[in-house]
Simulated assay, not measured.
Amino acid sequence: MFEVQRLGKVAYQPTWDEQKNMVRALDEGQIQDQLLLLEHPHTVTLGRGSHIHHLLLSTQDYQSKGIDVVEIDRGGDVTYHGPGQLVGYPIFYLDHQKHDAHSYLRDLEQAIILALSSFGITAGRMEQHTGVWVNEEKVAAIGVKFHKARHKKGYITSHGFALNVNTDLRYFSTIVPCGITDYGVTSMSRILGKEVEMDEVVVEVESAMKQVFT
């Protein structure tokens, strides 16, 4: 079982630093698995597979809009984080004999699909694109890093998922989200036609993660 930390609204860089600390602590047996649930201020992140032309504004334009741009060590391309989006960072130990990278990504997708179903939203997967989709629009992005454990066999995860709850989708127009040009993005509030209580989403996501990862 994992411990859940509900952090509220926190800046990106300190949270990334804390993930690194937790990966080390979990590897050394100082803590149990952790799930961080939070919101970030306006931030664009560039994963290891990012292409610079997927940033559609200049550095000065991002600054003028109050958007931080951060190069990070997860897989994947460019994505956006911001208010009204629930971000989850699982710091989990994966025994390589029981849980490989592919199945971990599918389980993250499944947890989000389960959580969305509790709000009456039918979501699913798209074979060629990691994430969770509703009618060919992405409602949740997933990008992770697998750290090879030093003190035991297997891997430890960091980074995770970003679920658009009440996200201002106009910010996605400043990037090519995940490098995908053929499909759009959506949010729970757009699908349901009303604002969604973030606390309720946190509860359902936490519950779904426990169902899938227990």
Rank of each mutant, 00 (worst) to 15 (best):
F2N: 06
F2S: 02
G8K: 05
Y12F: 07
T15R: 02
V23E: 14
V23S: 08
R24F: 11
R24I: 12
D27G: 00
Q30A: 09
I31V: 03
I31K: 03
I31E: 01
Q34A: 08
Q34E: 11
L35I: 02
L36E: 05
L37T: 09
L38A: 00
E39C: 13
E39W: 15
H42L: 14
T43L: 13
T43M: 12
T43D: 13
V44L: 07
G47M: 06
R48Q: 08
G49D: 04
I52Q: 07
H54T: 05
L56E: 12
L56C: 08
L56I: 08
L57I: 02
L57W: 08
Q60F: 13
Q60Y: 15
Q63I: 15
V69C: 00
V69N: 00
I72S: 03
I72G: 01
D73Q: 03
R74Y: 04
G76W: 00
H81T: 01
G82P: 10
G82M: 08
P83E: 15
P83I: 08
P83S: 12
Q85E: 13
L86W: 13
Y89I: 00
I91Q: 02
I91Y: 04
L94Y: 01
D95P: 01
H96E: 02
K98L: 15
A101K: 14
H102T: 07
L105E: 14
E109M: 04
Q110Y: 15
A111L: 08
I113S: 09
I113T: 08
L114F: 15
S117N: 13
S117K: 10
T122R: 12
T122N: 11
G124Q: 03
R125G: 08
R125V: 07
H129P: 12
H129Y: 12
T130C: 10
G131F: 07
V132M: 10
V134K: 05
V134I: 04
E136N: 09
E137T: 14
K138S: 11
A140T: 07
A140L: 04
I142P: 06
I142H: 11
I142V: 07
G143V: 06
V144S: 09
K148M: 11
A149N: 03
R150K: 10
K152N: 06
K153F: 07
I156A: 02
T157E: 05
H159L: 02
G160E: 01
A162N: 02
L163P: 06
V165M: 00
N166V: 04
D168W: 12
L169N: 02
R170F: 13
R170M: 14
Y171N: 10
Y171L: 03
Y171W: 12
S173I: 14
T174H: 09
I175A: 00
I175R: 00
C178G: 01
C178H: 03
G179H: 07
G184M: 08
V185L: 13
S187Y: 14
S187E: 13
R190N: 10
K194I: 05
V196P: 04
E197D: 13
E200P: 15
E200Y: 14
E200I: 12
V205A: 04
V205Y: 05
V205C: 03
V205F: 02
E206C: 00
S207M: 11
A208V: 06
A208F: 07
A208S: 08
A208Q: 06
M209R: 06
K210G: 03
F213K: 02
